[in-house]
């Protein structure tokens, strides 16, 4: 599943593989506030990129812009060589970008299994007719949806399987809700997953386990992943590359060690040294 789309890049002449996702001069304004200000950002196939930065740096706005939940002021977003401009959020998901939410937003009254099943909506097509007459095609697809959902949930070990299938999502523990959010994103069969603070609110054990899981997501399922995260040990563990945002612009980029020693980054986080610059 990985590494099949490389040749479809827009800039065909480029030597390296074209990026899977690329934002070009991306700007998002909220009134007078530049949440994102001319941001160039890219993700390659099978890459795990961390986006870090102080509060209000524009990290979540970047996710919202990519998934079309906020309108761009200017710039362009290119995914697999095609622009995402003007698409509805569901079309973006259909193109292969899935996301989780910073404040966990499950379908609380649906069961664990249903949460994952419903997220396969854009990959399935049986409509009212098939359901009413219980056609063979309908039954086959229902079975497939269920099977795929179970397979995805099995990826998380014993936590979301068995009797848990039929539990309403709101009964899950906090960590399990985060896991289910990831499972739901996986169910949309994306090429790129955007994880918004996946370990927020988890204890160290759970956090370490999820860190490992993010690596496995890439290795076993072939997703490219962008992670917004505040926990630096998680960032160090998972990222191939780290992008640092502040005030809507990119102030640093590179492997973790480079970025963590960058004076601009330290300044953005610690906020002193204004007199010098």
């Amino acid at each position: 599943m990985t590494c099949t789309m490389e040749s479809t890049g827009a800039g065909g002449g480029a030597t390296a593989a074209a990026p899977l996702l690329e934002t070009r001069k991306l700007s998002v304004d909220f009134g007078g506030l530049h949440a994102l200000d001319g941001l160039d950002f890219e993700v390659r196939e099978g890459e795990i990129v961390s986006v870090i930065g102080p509060n209000g740096a524009g990290k979540t706005t970047l996710f919202n812009a990519i998934t079309a939940t906020v309108a761009l002021s200017s710039g362009d977003i290119v995914f697999e060589g095609g622009s995402l401009l003007g698409l509805d959020p569901n079309k973006v998901t259909a193109r292969g970008i899935a996301r989780t939410f910073q404040n966990v937003r499950l379908f609380a009254n649906m069961t664990v299994l249903e949460n994952v099943m419903v997220s396969q909506h854009c990959r399935t097509r049986q409509h009212a007719f098939g359901a009413l007459f219980c056609t063979p095609a309908f039954r086959r697809e229902e079975a497939e949806i269920r099977e795929r959902a179970e397979k995805i949930l099995n990826f998380f070990g014993s936590r979301l399987v068995g009797y848990r299938f039929d539990q309403p999502a709101f009964t899950l523990s906090y960590a399990n809700r985060r896991r289910l959010e990831i499972a739901r994103a996986m169910a949309t069969e994306p090429k790129l997953i955007l994880l918004d603070e996946p370990v927020a609110g988890m204890n160290p054990v759970e956090s370490a386990e999820l860190t490992k899981l993010i690596g496995r997501l890439r290795d076993e399922w072939g997703f490219a992943i962008v992670v917004i995260e505040h926990h630096m040990d998680v960032v160090r563990e998972v990222s191939d590359r780290v992008v640092v945002l502040d005030h809507g612009t990119k102030i640093a980029e590179g492997v973790y060690e480079e970025v963590s020693n960058d004076p601009l980054v330290i300044e953005a986080y610690l906020g002193h040294g204004n007199e010098n610059s």
Partner: peptide, 18 residues
């Protein structure tokens, strides 16, 4: 299921490809 998802949270349903 899609109806239920819309009922639960329309924004998220949209983001999940519905």
């Amino acid at each position: 299921r899609a109806w239920m998802a819309v009922r639960e949270d329309e924004t998220v349903a949209e983001a999940m490809g519905i």
